[in-house]
Amino acid sequence: MMIQAIKATNVLLPLLYGLAFVLYALYFNTRQSELGKWASKLLLGGIVVHLVYLVTKGIYFQYFPITNSFESFSMIAFDTAVIYYIIERLNKEGKTGLFFLAIVFLFQVVSSMFIENNGIHSGLLANPMFGIHTFFTLLGLSSLAISAVYGLMYWMLAKEIKAHRFGAIYEGLPSLEMLEGMGRVGSLAGLVTLGLGIFLGHLWAYKILGYFFKADPKIVISDIAWISYAVGWLIVWRRGLSGLRLSRWAFWGFILFFMAIMVVNILGNTFHSFT
């Protein structure tokens, strides 16, 4: 019965996110506030269903459901949806939903298509501490990605305004100040949750392996990236930086971090791989 519900929800989730994406796209194009309200309600519905799905799966299989790539994809979709929804509600601005729901939808579609709900996983990953560490790390990465996307949007809109072009981007996106504010919330959420994820990772390593830090490329890169973000935030906050430069930093900073992780994963010899 429970497994049937898990499988059914696995199909339902992309449908919900897909529909929310369509409504956000219509809202972006027509700017009819009713569409925005419905899109937001549908997204909230999707998040609730997703949460039930993850909890049900965790209870049924007795592990935190982030033990393989496709489960992680679903968690990234969930995290992105949650962070975006919080940003949207805080700023009462839903015109950027289209871009994030596209990401959420894609990740969930791939996850739903290839996930195997058979409960097979490494015993090491059944530890709840691993789950919480991974959950916060993915939440942090999703938040930083959202912040980077806001940086990109700022950049694009600023370019349009400078070039005196008044197309779909100019018409559809909110003001530069709003985009910057939303990006700041994303990066701050990312900094906090990624920091928590990394810290829990070190703590878990200490408990299992007996040392707090290991000179593993993936860990080193993550730690450096987080410290860079934290220093960057401090500089921005102290010097009151804003505008185009900040948006470029948010975008390129994340791209650099992402590329470094990719390179380390592909070329580096890391112990920090469980799949």
């Binding site: 809109l157 100019y170 530069l176 100040e177």
Partner: peptide, 9 residues
């Protein structure tokens, strides 16, 4: 109107 595309308040 232009200013409103840059600042929200």
């Amino acid at each position: 109107e232009l200013a409103r595309k840059i600042y929200s308040s």
